[in-house]
Design a protein around this nucleic acid. Sequence first.
DNA 1: CGCTACGTTGAGAACAATCAACCCCGGTGG
DNA 2: CCACCGGGGTTGATTGTTCTCAACGTAGCG
Lengths: 259, 259
Amino acid sequence: MNKNRDTSSLNPAADRLPEAQPRPGGSCSPSCSPCETCAVRSLSICSGLQIEELVHLDTIVSKVRVRAGGSIFDEGEPATHRYVVTGGCVRIYRLLGDGRRQIFGFLFPGDFLGLAVGIDYAYGAEAVVDSDLCRFPHRELEDLIGQFPELERRLLGTAINELVVAQDQMVLLGRKSAEEKVATMLLTFSKRAEQRGMPTNPVSLPMTRADLGDYLGLTTESVSRTMTLLKTEALIRLEVANQVHLLDIEKLEEIAQGF
Amino acid sequence: MNKNRDTSSLNPAADRLPEAQPRPGGSCSPSCSPCETCAVRSLSICSGLQIEELVHLDTIVSKVRVRAGGSIFDEGEPATHRYVVTGGCVRIYRLLGDGRRQIFGFLFPGDFLGLAVGIDYAYGAEAVVDSDLCRFPHRELEDLIGQFPELERRLLGTAINELVVAQDQMVLLGRKSAEEKVATMLLTFSKRAEQRGMPTNPVSLPMTRADLGDYLGLTTESVSRTMTLLKTEALIRLEVANQVHLLDIEKLEEIAQGF
DNA sequence: CGCTACGTTGAGAACAATCAACCCCGGTGG
DNA sequence: CCACCGGGGTTGATTGTTCTCAACGTAGCG
């Protein structure tokens, strides 16, 4: 087993920005709602909401910016807020007693963050690169959900969706080889980019190899070696380490599906 | 990587009982609702519902019984029904192209089954032992959810709960050693038994070692060897293969948490 | 009584982890 | 301007955990 500790994580509490900055544009009237013009609305739980609901959302939201490597919240902390990522990239993870880390996923603009079963967050969240988030106080969001059942419906959809993604990841972690894991990851990232209208090829990997390892159940070195392997098989091309050109998607799909 | 195929799964479609048997007690009036007297109601999504809601539920539910090894539904099949397990044990799983299997979990009485993100089931479900289930047509259940928001709230709670369980399992699959995996599994099963008021020690394992392997990301042999290891460490005792006495829960917890 | 499914144990192989070295690049400061 | 430094990435050599293949034991059942 891999018991390597995460020595790289420079995660001082100082990196966190717990208090919201006052929103710019506070002088405009409620009808001039930033939520209405939100660039990621169509991707997020806010899509399909009525103007009235957006205005309500707008009254409780605050914006936060977190620097690369900074913490958004820690595992075990009281789950006081919910978030929507509006810019950057966020990793959510859990740590084992000796420092081993499992990353559950990487979140991009439009993704929801902070569902909690109890009173505490079940995982930690950190910014992979400088990131922006909309922050909703849990209490107020609950009230809003009570008023607008559509919001609850969207949250249920989000949760079920995340459940399916989690199951995909369980298959990957439990039953796939290193090569299959990396091929799956590359295709998954490409498809996610497509969903949000971003370029699908080359695939952009803003996170480090260590992050990818902790996401795929591998070591940094194994991720690197497997990338090299795919390169020698002429399935991918790497100009820079974080831009992966997919050269034979068909073949990659086959590998990813386990044939 | 482990590319062993699941040769053991005898899963002929003949084992399935797709059509509900007529419910016994059909002659009694709506006020005499079986849902009202359901033994697993307090454990399931039906807990906390009002009599009126239970009566409605009762009008759409049918009971099914599935023999050990039989299929309840297959991955990719249209998701026409939702289920609540009322007796026995059910495994949910996904297969890779070459037959490798990942089991997502084992469901016991009170557990909900069949949440689907799209129109098809994202996983297959089979009975581990002879099992009983309540079956709800998806369409009618949706209508009921529209009428009784409390049901939607319970489903959201269920989904979030499953999400946390899935994350626990990702940590196990991605970052734990064989010994840590088995220790975690034994403790998890013991705690689940406690939640439903069943005996917590010895832990009952109605599924085979192959099932456990596909659940833990190990082979049959590794599960067996690891059980033997825990036995030699005097942490467990095995009288019969499917009854595990936990002898040192403290130590098992330490191992499971990765210290 | 023999068949079959399931569980256990043994021997050897394989894949990924570990430990270590090195490269590259950007930032910093002399 | 360039030497130094540190983080990140790659590659090499070796180790080790788990898998694979195989044999055998046991229990249930026709």
